[in-house]
Computed example of a mutant assay.
Amino acid sequence: MDQLNALSSPFRVIPLARLASGGRWRTEAMRSYGAPVLLWFTRGQGRITVNGKTSGYTSHNAIYVPAGTMHGFEMNSTVHGMIVVFPVGVEDELSLPEDPVHLRLQEADQHIELNRLIENLQSELESGNLASDRAMLCHAGLLSVWIERQMRALDIEEPDEDASSRLAAAYTALVEQEFHSAKTVRDYAKELGVTPTHLSRVCNKACGRPASSILADRVHYEARRLLTETHMPIKDIASSLGFASAAYFTRAFQNHTGRTPSQFRRGA
């Protein structure tokens, strides 16, 4: 089961290694969550794609991802860290950022303070004490204040994006909204007022993969999630993701993952 959906508490603090325990697709495939998250990389390095733009991350990088924002990141055995999951719908109450934020923290006191904030939240989460939900909200508020202060200290403002970055972000946002449909890259390109070739060229420039790969990645992440977390019949999963038939879904899924949906479900 997806660790981000497995626990009943509105707050979650999860080791990245645990999140990735079901396979690389758990972190690398394009997906979004219904709640905002903070990724805290304490060791290792790799690449992360957020909103259609790929950049590198290293140890002591904190990356805030708003709810509903498509993202995925590389993770190998050298990468360690935590993911903090906020409750759904608390962005305004906690004054969380509206856009993704990538904090590259170079000072030891920054690392110590963030670790302390996360540990305090985790301790309250595990305590089960009276009014722990209210206490966790207070700790999360302090974490939100910390993010805002780091943005100011590092002089992080609204991203100065070029036309290609804006188009890639617009495409990933559309895919996130409509990947359950049977829309093709051509359909998305038409909606965005560009040609499929131009859209793919822009996506390749922004995140190193064509538009078709982003779309397929998002669809098949959802397929794998439904296969591992639900008992939905395969034909219903196929229908929910816009495939014309279960047979077509099976062929597409096997081409993408190397296993049929039934094999993947049994293995999970």
Rank of each mutant, 00 (worst) to 15 (best):
residue 128 G to Q: 02
residue 104 R to Q: 11
residue 244 A to W: 03
residue 56 G to P: 01
residue 97 P to M: 13
residue 210 P to M: 11
residue 159 P to R: 12
residue 80 H to K: 08
residue 22 G to H: 13
residue 139 H to R: 08
residue 176 E to D: 05
residue 35 A to L: 15
residue 23 G to D: 14
residue 195 T to V: 02
residue 130 L to Y: 09
residue 232 M to R: 04
residue 245 S to W: 11
residue 152 R to C: 08
residue 64 Y to T: 06
residue 131 A to W: 09
residue 56 G to F: 01
residue 262 S to N: 02
residue 23 G to Y: 14
residue 99 D to F: 10
residue 67 A to M: 06
residue 265 R to C: 00
residue 112 I to C: 12
residue 197 T to A: 05
residue 71 H to N: 00
residue 111 H to A: 11
residue 155 D to A: 10
residue 264 F to R: 02
residue 24 R to V: 09
residue 207 C to P: 04
residue 59 S to P: 01
residue 252 A to K: 13
residue 214 I to F: 07
residue 193 G to E: 04
residue 5 N to C: 14
residue 135 A to K: 08
residue 238 A to Y: 02
residue 23 G to S: 08
residue 21 S to R: 15
residue 65 V to H: 04
residue 67 A to D: 07
residue 106 Q to T: 03
residue 127 S to E: 05
residue 153 A to D: 11
residue 96 L to G: 15
residue 30 M to Y: 05
residue 121 L to R: 08
residue 251 R to H: 10
residue 137 L to C: 06
residue 25 W to N: 03
residue 174 L to R: 05
residue 228 T to G: 00
residue 168 A to F: 08
residue 259 R to N: 11
residue 208 G to T: 02
residue 103 L to D: 06
residue 115 N to V: 09
residue 53 K to P: 00
residue 220 H to P: 05
residue 129 N to F: 06
residue 145 V to S: 04
residue 162 D to T: 15
residue 117 L to S: 07
residue 164 S to W: 13
residue 67 A to G: 07
residue 178 E to P: 00
residue 244 A to G: 08
residue 244 A to F: 11
residue 40 W to T: 14
residue 193 G to L: 10
residue 63 I to M: 01
residue 158 E to Y: 14
residue 123 S to V: 13
residue 155 D to H: 06
residue 164 S to I: 15
residue 171 Y to H: 10
residue 202 V to C: 10
residue 65 V to T: 04
residue 47 R to H: 02
residue 84 V to T: 12
residue 138 C to K: 06
residue 103 L to P: 11
residue 99 D to A: 12
residue 183 K to A: 14
residue 114 L to I: 09
residue 83 I to H: 01
residue 6 A to E: 13
residue 117 L to C: 04
residue 202 V to L: 12
residue 73 F to K: 04
residue 6 A to R: 14
residue 3 Q to P: 10
residue 119 E to H: 13
residue 149 R to S: 01
residue 107 E to R: 15
residue 241 L to V: 09
residue 23 G to V: 14
residue 32 S to A: 07
residue 181 S to M: 06
residue 264 F to N: 03
residue 182 A to M: 02
residue 226 L to K: 07
residue 231 H to L: 00
residue 25 W to C: 04
residue 91 E to R: 14
residue 39 L to C: 07
residue 51 N to C: 00
residue 29 A to F: 10
residue 74 E to N: 04
residue 237 I to T: 07
residue 32 S to W: 08
residue 113 E to P: 04
residue 115 N to P: 03
residue 126 E to K: 08
residue 116 R to Y: 07
residue 32 S to P: 00
residue 21 S to H: 09
residue 245 S to F: 05
